[in-house]
């Protein structure tokens, strides 16, 4: 609430107070969000996601991002991939950072890196995806809403192990996405594919809010 508004005025004009409150809820800058960061107004966001993956699987999870400075953001993800019985679940968690190298009105370019851990029965997988995220967005509805596109090719340095046996690879992978925002609500679609003989894809719907 605005400090320059007297308590008397607040009581007398609740509509004005409400308008001030809603004024804070400006449409977040999605170009920055899809580079996994927030904006000056809302430096963070959190979302739930739901989708499908290869192997007739269902994907559920959540992710968040928080921008510490003009250029650096921290992000995290966790989720599970459930296959039809009796196949085991895949549980995944990741934490990473993004560094914004180009920021303009409509386009952001970020360098991203993360460390991901995944477990499938007794198979342990550690991945270090290193990539470049390019995000573009435009506003509409008088600036209250935005839509944007994102593309992120990345190299996934991967180490898999079971018992004393290991396998290392560095497949080129990629994500593309569509993001829509209205005030503080954000939503979107994301498709990810790994271009190797372990070719896996997943497609997810995301819904969340900026804060």
């Amino acid at each position: 609430m605005s400090p320059w508004l007297s308590r008397g005025a607040q009581r007398q004009n609740p509509v004005f107070v409400l308008a001030l409150g809603l004024g804070v809820l400006t449409a977040p800058d999605l170009a920055a969000q899809v580079c996994r960061g927030g904006t000056e107004v809302s430096p963070g966001w959190a979302a739930a996601e739901f989708g499908r993956a290869s192997g007739d699987a269902i994907v559920m999870g959540a992710d968040f991002a928080w921008r510490f400075s003009e250029s650096f953001s921290l992000f995290g993800e966790f989720g599970t991939t459930a296959y039809p019985d009796p196949d085991p679940r895949r549980n995944r968690r990741a934490i990473g950072g993004a560094y914004t190298v180009i920021r303009s009105t409509h386009v952001d370019v970020c360098l991203t890196a993360a460390i991901e851990g995944e477990r499938i029965a007794n198979l342990d997988i550690v991945r270090v995806p290193v990539g470049v995220a390019v995000a573009w967005s435009r506003t509409f509805a008088d600036g209250r809403a935005r839509w944007g596109l994102q593309a992120e090719p990345f190299l996934a340095l991967t180490h898999k192990s079971i018992a004393s046996y290991t396998h290392r690879s560095a497949p080129l992978s990629g994500r593309i996405g569509l993001v829509i925002g209205y005030r503080r609500l954000i939503g979107g679609l994301e498709y990810e594919n790994a271009f190797d003989n372990d070719a896996k894809w997943n497609a997810r719907v995301r819904l969340g809010f900026a804060f």
Binding site: S54, G55, A57, Y83, D87, P88, R90, E118, I120, L123, I125, K160, I162, Y165, H167, S169, A194, N197, D198, K200
Partner: peptide, 9 residues
């Protein structure tokens, strides 16, 4: 064999 290390069941 990479099959032992794939990310699917």
């Amino acid at each position: 064999a990479p099959e032992a290390f794939t990310r699917i069941p």
